[in-house]
Design a protein around this nucleic acid. Sequence first.
DNA 1: TCCATAAATCGAGATATCTCGATATGCAGT
DNA 2: ACTGCATATCGAGATATCTCGATTTATGGA
Lengths: 102, 102
Amino acid sequence: MDIEKPISALNNPVRRRILEWLKDRSNFPPALPGHEDLEGVCVAYIQEKAKLSQSTISNYMGLLKQAGFVIAERHGQWTFYRRDEENIQAFLAAVQDELLKP
Amino acid sequence: MDIEKPISALNNPVRRRILEWLKDRSNFPPALPGHEDLEGVCVAYIQEKAKLSQSTISNYMGLLKQAGFVIAERHGQWTFYRRDEENIQAFLAAVQDELLKP
DNA sequence: TCCATAAATCGAGATATCTCGATATGCAGT
DNA sequence: ACTGCATATCGAGATATCTCGATTTATGGA
C-alpha cells in the first residue's frame, strides 16, 4: 500500500472533516426519496455542510476517492459517496508499519 | 493532539524516508569520536544520505521536530536528531482516533 | 582573537495546492 | 429533442511548498 496519495488527501482540514462527517449518515439531511437504502451522501449535501463551492467539493471527493478513503456510487444524476472502511484500515496499518519502529 | 503539522510533515517522501532511516542508527556512519553514547544523528550524515542541500535538510529536520517526530539535542557544534517514539505513537493513536469509525 | 566547521536562517525561483466561476457531461422527465 | 438538475472538468489567480545558494549564528580549537 502506497501512502503517498492518502497522506496528501489527508493534508487538508476540510477533507479530514468530510471523512469524519461520513462516519455518520445523520450528519446530513435525510436521504432523497427513493434512495433511502443507500449509505452514501450526495455531493450537494457535503457541499452545503462544508460551505465551499460545488467544484471544490467535487474535486475533494475525487481526491478522497483516489486515495481510497471513499467509494463513489452513481445513481441516476447523483453520485453517492461513502467511506471505504476496509481501505481506511489498510491505510492506518500501512502508516503504522512505516512509522513504527520494528 | 493536533495532527495538522504531523500530517503536513509526513506529506513528503524524503521526510518519511528520514524517519525510517532514524529507526536504526546503523543506517548512518559511526558516531563521531566522543559521541558514541548518543542515539542521535547529525545533520551532515542525514544530508549525505538524502542527497539534498544542507539548508533543505536543516529545514526538513525543523519541520519533523515541530511535528513532534524527532528530538533535537545540541552537543557542541552538532545537532543530533533522534526519533521521538512516544510522540510518534501518540500521533498514530490520534490519526486512528480521527479516521476510524467509532 | 582568529579561523574552521556545523547548523540555522534568509531570499528567491520553480512547482504544487487551493479555491473559485464558467463550462461541459450525463441523466430524467416532458 | 429539449429543459433542468447534479456532478465533473477546465482555466486561472492566490497562496503554499520545495529546494537551492548565500549568509548568519554558534561553537571549538590554534
